[in-house]
Amino acid sequence: MEENSMAEVFNDIKKPENLVYSKSKVLTDNVMHYCPGCSHGVVHRILAEVIEELGVQDKTIGVAPVGCSVLMYNYIDIDWQEAAHGRAPAVGTAINRLWPEKIVFTYQGDGDLAAIGTAETIHACNRGENMIMLFINNGIYGMTGGQMAPTTLKGMKSSTCPFGREPAQDGNPLKITELLAQLPGTSLVTRQAVHTPAAVRKTKKALLKAFENQKQKKGTSVIEVVSTCNSGWKMTPVESNKWMAENMFPFYPLGDFKDE
């Protein structure tokens, strides 16, 4: 009897007019290959939501990187171009110059944007190419097995620095977003995270702003998302979110560095 009334209540709520949230139509039905709890999934989702809200699905071109998100073109239903490792800003530059009326974004991890692709990144930002650069920073090379990246924190363990990163031997972690904020070509430089619902909403707002800047041809918009790699960090998704808030945020503080 009680179960029947429960089902009745559910049927009463489950109506199209009561719908608060459902999966974005810009996302495909493919199940993402990412590990459980990976930040990539959340960023893909809000990216798809922003594209859907602005109604720019038919004129957005994404540049996929090398890294875990290399198969990103399977998940968001827009036009894509795959770039060689680190060269997404160069490919983005070409697309942007051939089709100035299209919306172009690049999506890169820290090994792609801040290591092998540093030159492309810095020069694309310095030229002020009119595109959006999304930077996923989890302080590790997640795809290849958790090796040390330029953004690995001091003392942070990875498979190639198992006793923690030692600056005397391994160098210092690189704050590339702060570097890019110094360049005259960038219009919006911000660092966000996606570990709590509030942070996700803020990141989505920043993305909306970046798409708006692109429409107004303001220059490069750089959005860094401090993320987790729970497989590479050897933690559960919930623990890695906590670890990120305690250890990553003091060195990579969230907030806007430039907004013109």
């Binding site: 429960m6 559910f10 009463d12 709520i13 489950k14 109506k15 009561n18 719908l19 608060v20 949230y21 459902s22 999966k23 974005s24 996302l27 199940v31 993402m32 990412y34 459980p36 709890g37 990976c38 930040s39 990539h40 999934g41 959340v42 989702r45 996606v194 570990h195 709590t196 619902p197 996700v200 909403r201």
Partner: peptide, 24 residues
């Protein structure tokens, strides 16, 4: 289920977009 207020926080953090939320 009785405690749900339909705030959609769960769907905000879901990496696999597998949660649909209704509220009345």
């Amino acid at each position: 289920p009785d405690a749900c207020i339909g705030c959609a926080n769960c769907s905000m953090v879901c990496p696999d977009s597998c949660i649909t939320v209704y509220r009345k």
